[in-house]
């Protein structure tokens, strides 16, 4: 088990280097840097001062030198400072000589995105599991078909369109939910419970929408996994032994059909993080997606690189955890590893 773990950890290093190389190359595909943003297109600014900026940020050095500098710093988890946002650290907080703490940009954005994604994953599992099982048990009958259509609608509807309609309906037509943001004004004067409730209200729509989008994948996966398992020999045996149908389905079939789900969750992390751009822009949520989108428009290279690398590293860790959990949960693999 330990050897397997070490092996996996060892392989993460070249993967991370590969990821950083790809993201670095992409950024240098096209012209444009921090000095060509809207703010700089002002007759009161001058080209010399922009050139000065470029030198300060090493943007005048050859690409390969810039990459080297970056890789060197990354190995110490130093993702540098944002070009655009007044030198905020990209990743983690810093304390200056006067004791002022500047929070890292990713440090602040990541927990928000993770919270939304974890909550929507829980929502997805809660709904997709029963839907998938019902679908499998009623294969090709009406419930199966309706469920399939329902989850596909969730997947196929452009999420920002649905988001705006729901915002209008729940926020303008009825005063049920807040429209955008994370907190109500003055929420910090409330008790922690009311604050949590307030945040939860703000997150209801984002979670609902991201959950609806992800429903199709998981529920179909459960359905197909169940069908797969239900046709296997040991299920037939169990049935032949005269075990009650419920026991067969929930004790034997479902457990085995669920195992591969663990892997799917690991693999779905990059999609979830990536999908956060649109939801966070529309709901005005200061998470990773919003941060990334702004950085792209500002050509804020350190932030782009930092997010791509940390987002990918998260996925690698997620996959590793998923594999470990899988190994732990599946007796066959567990035994194999032990030998």
């Amino acid at each position: 088990m330990l050897k397997y773990l070490l092996n996996r950890l060892f392989w993460m290093v070249p993967l991370l280097v590969g990821i950083s190389l790809i993201s670095f190359l992409i950024m240098h595909l096209a012209p444009g840097d921090i000095t060509s943003t809207e703010a700089s297109f002002n007759p009161k600014t001058s080209e010399e001062s922009r050139q000065k900026l470029r030198e300060l940020y090493n943007l005048d050095k050859p690409v390969i030198v810039q990459y080297g500098l970056w890789l060197k710093r990354m190995s110490t988890l130093d993702f540098g400072h944002s070009f655009a946002s007044h030198q905020s650290p990209v990743f983690w907080q810093e304390t200056d000589k006067d004791g002022n703490v500047t929070k890292g940009m990713i440090q602040e954005a990541l927990p928000i995105t993770l919270l939304i994604n974890v909550l929507s994953l829980i929502l997805i599992i809660g709904i997709a599991l029963p839907l998938g099982v019902i679908s499998a048990l009623t294969q090709n009958k009406l419930p199966d078909r309706s469920i399939t259509i329902f989850v596909f609608i969730g997947f196929a509807i452009p999420s920002f369109w649905l988001a705006l309609m729901l915002m209008y309906w729940t926020g303008v037509s009825h005063n049920w939910l807040p429209i955008s943001g994370l907190h109500s004004l003055g929420a910090d004067k409330l008790s922690w419970f009311s604050q949590a409730l307030d945040t939860l209200k703000h997150l209801t729509l984002p979670i609902l929408i991201s959950g609806l989008t992800g429903l199709a994948g998981i529920s179909l996966f459960v359905r197909n996994g169940m069908l797969d398992v239900l046709h296997q020999d040991y299920i037939t045996t169990a049935r032949a032994k005269g075990l009650p149908e419920n026991t067969v389905i929930y004790k034997h079939a479902l457990r085995n059909a669920l195992l591969p789900l663990i892997t799917i969750f690991g693999l779905s992390i990059p999609g979830l993080i990536g999908g956060s751009v649109i939801a966070e822009s529309i709901f005005a949520i200061p998470g990773m997606g919003k941060l990334f989108y702004d950085a792209v428009l500002m050509r804020d290279f350190p932030v782009i690189m930092g997010i791509l690398t940390i987002g990918s590293a998260l996925t690698l860790v997620g996959n590793l955890l998923a594999d470990l959990a899988y190994a732990w949960a599946d007796p066959r693999v567990r035994k194999g590893v032990a030998q």
Binding site: L164, M167, G171, V172, I179, S180, I282, A284, P286
Partner: peptide, 20 residues
């Protein structure tokens, strides 16, 4: 004076309509 950061203009308009 409170300035809320709302990137999407459609969302801003909804907030205006909802009196937020």
């Amino acid at each position: 004076l409170v300035s809320r950061i709302i990137p999407d203009r459609a969302a801003q308009f909804l907030e205006l309509m909802a009196d937020n």
